[in-house]
Write a protein that binds this DNA or RNA. Structure first.
Lengths: 188, 188
DNA sequence: ACCTGAACACCGTTCAAGT
DNA sequence: ACCTGAACACCGTTCAAGT
């Protein structure tokens, strides 16, 4: 007879999903290994069988947001259109998840597969005719704008008067348009 | 006779300076109230006489970086030049202090004086002929780009191959130029 | 007014031990 | 293989008490 194999209580996807739920419900301050474990009906050290440390878990979360944004971008006629759609998708993703900006500040998106290679990162843009160096540079700028905007927007100092004073959605859009419009590829 | 008045061991400036020193030497993970107090030869609770909580202290730190950037911008011929110089100054400030991006993600810059009012924030640009709404929007976009860039740059995923693949300084500059070049004021 | 001592309610992580 | 129990070395913050 084979030994009885009982089903594991946890797997990576289960934990990441629970972490997103906890983040949405209680915010990043409440996202501790102990609370997460409790929600999964398990003790905190059990999580360390599945993840090296908390940072790895958070990296999978930002990685998911990051990847989903790319998937949301449909077929585009040219690289400028792709950049604008990508910027909007990133912003949507960061608005969807609570404290997303703080998450990105702590834990870089974990790449999966060969998505970490420069040609793969540049691909959506090089496919539309942009050279690789320009593609990497432009994509980095769009990510930075979206990331910085949500950090800025989450910040209290502005949030009070700015949301009356300044339409945040419209202003982000204006910034994104400006960035993409003004971008000049390194090789004409 | 008056009672003997002994000099206080601490004041706000002293603490903020020590916090910057600790941040530079040991990074944001080591910036705890207890370690900071130890460096000042005092017990941790003493800090709570001078600051409401840790966040207030961090806000003074980001506020200092933020304000210094503005002071570094000299006289400009037009608002586009001001935005570019301001963006560069912000980036310098964030490179100067370790973990600056994470600091900004946690604690919004504490405004001081009447610097928190919209007209004051817009002033450097409205003085150069831009309308207030465009000024706030453009300034927010430049801040976001600088902030996001340093978050992005601090992140590991890219940092490995990106620093060979992509000149980070040159790319930031290209993004900043694009943003400012492409920006169209709301009122022509 | 300004600081200390002691305590509270937490953290992330390690590691032997259980099953 | 996967999880628990117990422990270590920390946190931020409060509060009575000292001077």
């Amino acid at each position: 007879m084979m030994a009885k194999r009982i089903a594991p209580a946890l797997d990576r996807k289960l934990v990441v999903d629970a972490a997103f739920a906890l983040l949405r419900e209680e915010g990043i301050e409440a996202l501790s290994m102990r609370r997460l474990a409790a929600r999964l009906q398990v003790q905190a050290p059990a999580l360390y069988w599945h993840f090296r440390d908390k940072n790895e878990l958070l990296g999978l979360m930002t990685g998911a947001i990051y990847r989903q944004a790319q998937e949301e971008v449909g077929a585009c006629a040219d690289w400028r259109e792709w950049l604008v759609e990508y910027g909007r998708a990133l912003r949507r993703g960061m608005l969807r998840e609570r404290d997303a900006a703080r998450l990105f500040a702590i834990a870089p998106p974990a790449p999966q597969g060969e998505a970490a290679q420069a040609p793969a990162i540049a691909a959506p843009l090089t496919d539309l005719g942009l050279d690789q160096a320009s593609a990497l540079s432009a994509r980095a700028a769009v990510i930075s704008l979206a990331l910085g905007w949500s950090t800025y927007e989450a910040n209290g100092p502005m949030h009070h008067f700015l949301e009356g004073m300044l339409d945040l959605d419209r202003s982000f859009e204006a910034g994104l348009q400006a960035l993409v419009r003004g971008f000049e590829p390194f090789t004409a």
